[in-house]
Simulated assay, not measured.
Amino acid sequence: MTVIGEDSELGSDPLDPPLMAPLRPDLTWHQVQQMSQSVGYRDDPMLRAIRATAVIRRGTRMTKVLSPAQVAGHLGGWLPYGFCYRSCDIAHLREPQQLALLRTDGGTDSPVAFALRWRATDPVDYEVPAAPAHPGLAALPGHSRIGAMVLGTGFTPSADDLVPEYVTAGFADLPLSANAQLLAYVPGGDEVVLYTYQPEQHGWLRLAGPRWRNLLGELPGVSPDREYVPCTVTGTAKLVGRIDDQEYEAVADPPGEFRVRALTRAARYPVRSLSRRAEQARWRGVPAWVLQRDETWARLRLLRPEVEAINATGARCYERGVYEAWAPVGELSDHHIADVGYALPDAA
C-alpha cells in the first residue's frame, strides 16, 4: 500500500490516518486520480477500497474552506455543516487559488483563502457524499446547484489532486469543538490563525496581530480591532451530557475530553454520556432539520438532497449540497427532537 500525501505532517498524526492506495505498475497514482474523477467508477471495488482508508477518528482535524461572508457568519454563531475535508488530505494545498477550488459557495476569485478547522467529536457525524448515504447528490442538475458538481465517487472534482470529501451527517449542524480555529491562507502559502473558539463563552478570541489587520478587514461586518467576538446567535444543535440522572449542556474537546459547559473550571466535570441534539421534522414527506421557527413558519434543511425532495419542497441551494426551504409550521409532521448518541471511551 502507498500513502497518498505522505509528506504531510498532519498525515503522520494517528488521529489523521493517511489515504492509502495499492499502487503497482498496472495501477499508477495517475490512474487512481483519473478513476476518482470518472462517474463510471462510482461502484468500482478498488476505488471504494481506497476511499475507505480515509478514516475519520475521534479528534481527526476537519477543515471547511470559507468565503469572507461565511467567516463572518461563523464569528456570529454559525456551526460547521455541509461539505468538508480531513485537514491531512488538503495540507498540501496552501496557496489561496488552490484552496479556493474547495469553497462551497461557488466563488473562486479571491487573493486570500479562509477556512474553519475543528476536531471531529465522533465519526458518526460524517458521511461520504455518495451512495449509499447520498445517492441523489450526484444526480442533481446544474441549474439547481451551487459550486462544483458531486461526482459520487467520494472524491472532490480536481484535475490534479486526489482529495476525499465528506459531508456532515445528513447535512446537520455540528456543535463546535473547543479551540476550533478560523484561518487565512495568504499568497506564498502562509497559514494565519485569525480566531480560536471559546465554547464556555460562546465566542471567538482574536489571535491575529496588527500585521494581519488587512485580512480581518476583508470580513464583512467584522471590526478588526475587537479582541473578542461574542457569537450573536444560538446554534441549531448542541451537545448534551449526563452525570448520573442530571442532564447538562456539554462541551467537546476531542479526542479525550467531554465536559459540562461551565464558566468556572471547577464546575467543568466530565460527562458520562454525550449526544448531539437538534430538531427534525418532515414536510411533504421529506425529512429535514428545523433550523429556525416561530408560530407560523419554519426554516428547514434537507437531510438527503435529491431531485424528488427538492421538487416536492421547492428547496433552494444556498451552498454546495445544502438545500433549504421555508414551510408553514402547521404542515410539518413527525416534528421531534433528535438525539445522536456518542459512545464515550469511559462508557464502554
Rank of each mutant, 00 (worst) to 15 (best):
Q292V: 06
R284A: 14
A133T: 12
R58P: 11
N311T: 10
A54V: 05
V128E: 05
T153L: 06
S158M: 10
A180Q: 05
G76D: 04
L215N: 05
A252E: 02
V124T: 13
G330R: 08
R242V: 00
G40P: 04
P111G: 10
R276I: 02
W29F: 14
T234F: 08
V322K: 02
A315T: 10
W29H: 11
Y85E: 01
E247K: 09
H74N: 03
A288G: 14
P111Q: 07
P45S: 05
Y185Q: 04
Y197P: 03
I310Q: 03
P328S: 12
I337H: 10
R145G: 01
A309C: 06
R316Q: 04
V124I: 14
F114P: 01
V229N: 03
G11D: 11
R276P: 01
S36T: 05
P328L: 07
E247N: 07
L239P: 00
R316K: 07
P14M: 02
G107S: 13
T196M: 12
D346C: 08
S158H: 11
V329A: 07
G341K: 07
G341F: 02
H92Q: 12
L101Q: 15
D43M: 11
D160I: 08
V251H: 01
P157Y: 07
D122C: 09
G189L: 05
S158E: 10
V233T: 15
S8T: 10
Y248S: 08
V112I: 13
D89R: 03
A52H: 10
R265C: 00
G203K: 01
L15R: 14
Y195L: 09
D26L: 06
T296G: 06
S333R: 15
C231T: 15
Y41D: 06
A21S: 13
E324H: 00
L344F: 02
P220V: 11
P14L: 05
D161S: 09
L239M: 12
W326I: 08
V192Y: 02
L19V: 15
H30W: 09
T2V: 07
S273K: 01
E295H: 15
L303G: 02
I90L: 01
G11P: 05
N179A: 13
N214Q: 13
D339N: 14
D161R: 09
W326K: 11
A266G: 00
L102K: 00
P96I: 05
C84S: 08
E247W: 07
D346I: 11
A252R: 00
D225A: 13
E127I: 00
E191S: 03
R301L: 11
A348C: 03
Y197M: 01
K64A: 13
E319L: 13
R301C: 08
E218D: 13
V233N: 06
V229T: 04
D109N: 11
P199I: 11
D244I: 09
A130T: 13
S8D: 12
G170M: 09
R117G: 02
W204G: 11
V71M: 07
G77L: 06
G341C: 00
Q181L: 14
Q34E: 15
R51P: 02
Y323T: 12
I337C: 07
F114V: 02
D125F: 11
I50M: 10
V271R: 04
W326S: 12
R242H: 11
P129A: 08
G5A: 07
H134F: 09
L93S: 05
E306C: 14
A250T: 13
